[in-house]
Amino acid sequence: MKKSDLKKWLFTMTDRELYYKNHPEYYNSLYDSCESKQLDNRKVYVFKFHEQKKKNDLTPLNPKLEIVKHSRYSSIPVHIHDYIELNFVYAGTCKAIVRDKTIPLQCGDVCIMDTNVPHTISEVEDEDIVINILMEKSYFTASMLGQLSSNSIISDFILDAISHDRLHNRFLLFHCQDSEKLIPIVEELLCEFYEPSFCARDIINAYMVLIFAEMLRHFQTDNSKDSTAAHRNSILDILKFIEENYQNCTLQKTATAFNFHPNYLSRLIRKKNGKSFKQLLQEQKLNKASSLLANTSMTIAEILQEVGYQNHGFFNKIFKERYGLSPKEYQLKMNNTKSISQLNKQI
C-alpha cells in the first residue's frame, strides 16, 4: 500500500461513520452483550482481545496484534480490556476520558493503557484520525523486550502490564508533536499491516520497537507547569538521576539535585509515574542485580554490596517477589541457559 492510498483510506468516511454522524443519538446495542463489571463503584464494559480481533481483523498476520482506525462520531462506553492498548492521534484532536478525567489529545500524542484502566475516546470528527493498536500481553516476547532499553519507562510499564501480580491501573501519556519520525514510522507500519509484503510480521514488529523508542525520546507526561523548576526538569530527568545514582540515592539527595522540597518531589514522582520514590529505587536496584547475576561471575554478597543492599534476607525476599526465583536460583538458571546456548553453537 502506498502512503497516498493509506491517507485517502484513513480520511474517507465509512458508511458506519456517516451513520453515526447523522444519528448522534444512536446507541449500539451490541455493547449490551459485552461482559461488564463494577469498578470504582461504577459499571464498566470489558473488551476482550479475541472479540476485537474477530470483529476487526483484516489480515490474520499476527494473532496477538490488531490495528484499527477509531470510528469517528461513535459513542463508545467507558471500558477496560484484557490487552494493552496504544492510542495514537494521527491527525486532528480528540479527548480521552481516563478514570473520569478528560485529557485533550492532539496530533502526535500517544496514550498507552494497561488492562484495568476505565477509559474511552470521544469527540472524534471528520478531520480527526486516531489509530488504536491492540496488543495481547503475550505479544511482548523476550526478544522484543530485549530490543527496548532495559531500564526504560516503557519497558518497565510493559513488564508490569504482562505480570500477574500488579494492579494494572496505569497509563502513560506521550507528547510527540515535535517528532519528525513518529508519523512516518506509523504510516509505514499501517501500510505493512494492511497490505503485507514478504517477512511482514518481522517488519511490523521492528516498526513497533521503533515507535516505542521514538516515544521514549520525546517522553513527558504533560505540558502543564507544576512549577518553574518542574518545567525545566522533566520527570524523565528525575528518573535518569535515580537510574544513574541508585547505589546511594535518597529522596533528600534527589530533591536537592532538582531544587525541590522532598515532600513535593515525592508527590510529583507518584503523580507522574504512578509509583513512589522507594518503589522506583528498588526496581532500579533489582534491575541491576538481575543483570549482574545473569552476566557476571560476581557472588551474591558482592552483588548486594554493588547495588547498595545490606540485608541479605530482605534482598532475597523482594528479588523472589519480582522474578519468582531466589537470587541463587536465578543465577543458576541464567548460567544453565548460557551453557546450553554455547553448546548448541558448538554443535
Rank of each mutant, 00 (worst) to 15 (best):
Y207W: 10
Q38T: 09
N245S: 10
N62Y: 05
P327S: 09
Y45V: 03
I211K: 11
A142T: 11
D109K: 05
D114S: 14
E306V: 15
C107E: 15
V186H: 04
N169Q: 14
Q279T: 14
D109H: 15
S179D: 09
V78D: 07
K272D: 14
Y90Q: 06
N151C: 07
T221C: 05
T115L: 06
I76G: 01
L182G: 09
H175L: 04
F198S: 13
E192T: 13
Y90S: 11
F88G: 07
S149P: 03
K37E: 15
F157P: 01
A206P: 00
V117M: 07
Q106G: 12
G313R: 11
T250C: 09
Q331D: 03
N56M: 10
I347M: 09
C249K: 02
V78A: 09
R270K: 12
S341H: 03
E188H: 12
K275M: 10
I269N: 01
N116C: 04
Y246R: 09
H168Y: 08
R232M: 14
G146A: 11
Y19S: 12
K253H: 00
E66N: 10
I269T: 04
R267E: 11
K55I: 05
I269L: 14
I129Y: 01
E35R: 15
P327L: 08
A91I: 01
P60R: 06
D5H: 01
Q247K: 15
H218S: 13
R217C: 13
H50P: 02
K253N: 02
Y330G: 00
R267K: 15
V98Y: 05
M298A: 15
E302S: 14
R232A: 14
P118I: 02
D109Y: 09
T93R: 15
A301W: 01
K333R: 12
S138L: 05
S74R: 08
E321Q: 15
I133F: 04
F47R: 09
K320S: 08
M334P: 00
S326Y: 01
W9E: 13
S29W: 08
A96M: 05
I112K: 05
M208Q: 10
G274N: 00
Y246T: 12
L6H: 08
K137P: 06
E35C: 07
D178R: 14
E244A: 15
H70D: 12
A213T: 13
A229T: 11
G146P: 00
K7N: 14
Y90I: 03
I76S: 11
I103T: 06
A200D: 07
H50F: 10
D109F: 07
A301G: 13
C34V: 03
Q177V: 03
L239N: 00
F315S: 09
I67K: 01
F157T: 04
K69Y: 01
K181H: 06
P184N: 01
T12D: 02
H231M: 13
E17I: 06
H175G: 03
M208L: 14
L343K: 11
Y246W: 07
K7Y: 11
A257K: 03
P60T: 00
I97R: 08
H79S: 05
F49D: 14
L236Y: 02
P77K: 07
T141G: 05
S75V: 05
Y31H: 14
S74E: 13
C107N: 15
S75K: 12
R16A: 09
C191T: 02
V307Q: 00
N22D: 13
N223H: 11
